[in-house]
Design a protein around this nucleic acid. Structure first.
Lengths: 214, 214
DNA sequence: AGGTGTGAACACTTTCACAGCA
DNA sequence: TGCTGTGAAAGTGTTCACACCT
């Protein structure tokens, strides 16, 4: 299959959420889907056409059928086993965000290097010691690791996790992480987003001063 | 000034973080900066050249000077006043993440609609009632609002905040938000990131099955 | 020589516009 | 007729390659 861009995959994720909440009938047009997703009808059709022919000309897309296709494309037909490294504030918030579970992402293990946290029970899941990481990743057959440790510790956690064979990492530490080819890495970095907003504000003000023409 | 892409702004943010930690001398070349940022030297030079001429040919960029320029470009020379709407788990984690403050982002107010939370003191900041939102946004001269409420409530919070004159919003609710032109919106959506990883894993496996050639 | 700044080439993504099927 | 699927066109972002300055 042809290479698919990250923006396309992100939109598929969005389309799926829209379909789940759609109450407009058994079929939906690219136009409607685009409206809800904030993109263009052509973009919707192009995105979907990269994976197959799901629509009916003159009619649109069957909502249940397209939902199923998108779930399949995104790999949501199966259960993913997730481990969380870092039981600090962010780790706790993520653990508590149980929406994940309904999407098929199950947090099977939590790790922390702080001895005072190890042994805590979080809703039935025990916080384990850092040293158990490699062993538990293997025994629990973990697919995805969420890294929620302080920035200086992040790369070494990632190196260990990758060495243990994990191929997908979601990084919350505000630092750049290196992974070898073949490992999927996504970053969630609030500092970058805030600085993006700062840039927008600073620049908007500059534009205002200049006379708001542009 | 010419329109700058979001990816460029994101990279500037990254360059700035690298410069802060740089211990290699008083100047840095585009090559070194690119290595640390995981991009190409040409990309670094192009990004910077969009804003001015900061380097010296044959030498590279002065670290303190470039740091200052980047801070200026990103609007980090000033203090930004931030409000947090939603005092749940994510809100608490964000509030606790005090790195923000060192970057010039100050959380001045916290809001929640849950009466049992209102009145709590968070490290000196009182959780206020939802009804006070508009009044406090004005009296506290809030620049940026972080939305950390459940998905169904997010759009209405954003509408109120925009009506109150706020021009920059960071949304953590896992839903698509509409804002009028002129309002900057950034989304942090863990569901989309996880589904991106799911896609990568599902697809990698497909490639493996196919023989790993491609 | 060393390393920036930048037009031009290239690659990728989005939009257009329309043929073709239900 | 209505709406999809898709080549071609337009637009955007990245890489190349080299003139030019220190």
């Amino acid at each position: 299959m042809k290479r698919i861009s990250e923006s396309t995959v992100g939109r598929l994720s969005l389309y799926l959420r829209i379909l789940k909440e759609y109450a407009g009938g058994a079929t939906i047009s690219s136009e409607e889907l685009a409206g809800a997703a904030g993109t263009s009808a052509a973009q919707v059709r192009k995105d979907l056409s990269l994976f197959g022919t799901f629509g009916k000309r003159g009619l649109g897309y069957s909502v249940p059928e397209l939902t199923g296709e998108l779930r399949g494309i995104l790999g949501l037909g199966q259960e993913w086993r997730v481990a969380l490294v870092g039981a600090g504030r962010i780790g706790q918030a993520l653990f508590g965000y149980q929406d994940f579970r309904t999407q098929g992402f199950y947090i099977q293990a939590v790790f922390d290097s702080d001895a005072s946290k190890v042994g805590e029970r979080w809703n039935g899941t025990v916080v384990r010691a850092d040293e158990e990481l490699e062993r538990v990743l293997a025994t629990e057959a973990i697919d995805i690791v969420i890294v929620a440790v302080p920035a200086p510790a992040a790369q070494s956690v990632v190196d260990r996790v990758v060495a243990a064979g994990v191929r997908a990492i979601l990084n919350f530490a505000p630092t750049r992480i290196e992974v070898p080819a073949g490992v999927a890495l996504k970053n969630v970095n609030m500092a970058v987003e805030l600085e993006g907003l700062s840039y927008a504000l600073a620049n908007e003000r500059a534009n205002d001063r200049r006379g708001r023409a542009g």
